[in-house]
């Protein structure tokens, strides 16, 4: 009797395994034909239904593996001087990865300039990491009169981006650390004032030991979700 019961459990387990596996598989496969009605823009030849047998909405999104602590790295500054990130040890950092060819990166620079001067008295330092050619970065930084420090690199800066878990490079992204070097959050995409203020508040709460790291991270996730809901509700 016991043997029969165990066999039944094993079979049920096996069925569950197969079900889970096939479910994952079916989730990851784009649904056929679902997007056949897309309106083409700029198509050289008229598209047919067979052009669109993949529904992009079913595709897996990129996964970012955020490190717990600020990784150690050294990049050159605007003048070409190698600068380790430990230059700012003991400070909360807002590490903004950007490039001159990236429109949303350019758009958020005025905000970062403002945050830099507003947050400096609170021990928070804004540092740019430009993944770009040095001449273009310096020209643009001079044009916009960016006063906060900027580190510059090409392949080496991409390697640094990968250290933050952004393996499929995408810009801009901004890393916020507490003054102990713990990564509080990594924000992908263009930063806006409301989001920046929300994250800053959580980081300061961690710095002042009013919030634990996990609690601060939850606050940020929930806060960003609420902001997004507000934005989609009003827009």
């Amino acid at each position: 009797m016991k043997t029969a019961a165990a066999v039944a459990v094993a079979v049920l387990g096996a069925l569950l395994g197969v079900w889970a596996g096939t479910r994952v598989h079916s989730n990851r496969q784009p649904a056929a034909g679902a997007a056949a009605q897309r309106v083409p823009v700029g198509a050289a030849s008229p598209p047919t239904a067979s052009d669109f047998t993949n529904d992009f909405s079913e595709l897996p999104h990129a996964v970012v593996k955020i490190p717990e602590h600020m990784p150690d790295f050294t990049l050159s500054d605007r003048a070409g001087k190698p600068t380790p990130i430990t230059t700012w040890a003991g400070k909360s950092l807002v590490l903004n990865f950007w490039a001159t060819w990236c429109a949303p990166c350019r758009r958020e620079i005025p905000l970062l300039k403002a945050l830099s001067s507003e947050w400096a008295p609170h021990g928070v330092e804004v540092v740019g990491v430009a993944v770009d050619h040095r001449e273009q970065v310096t020209a643009y930084a001079n044009e916009l009169k960016i006063a906060y420090p900027i580190l510059v690199g090409e392949e080496d800066a991409l390697d640094v981006a990968a250290k933050f878990g952004v393996d499929s490079p995408v810009f801009p992204f901004t890393v916020f650390t507490d003054r102990r070097g713990q990564v509080v959050t990594l924000y992908v995409g263009e930063l806006h004032r409301a989001e920046a203020n929300l994250i800053f508040l959580a980081v300061q709460n961690v710095n002042d030991n009013r919030l634990g790291l996990a609690e601060a991270q939850r606050t940020i996730v929930n806060g960003l979700r609420a902001l997004r809901a507000d934005a989609s509700g009003s827009g």
Partner: peptide, 28 residues
Amino acid sequence: AVACSLAGWAEAKPWWMRGTDASESDFL
């Protein structure tokens, strides 16, 4: 069988049940 089930489940679970060190982002 249970191990296999767990292997499937680990992949199938939604993002908020995955480890905090890996978060699915909003971009492709």
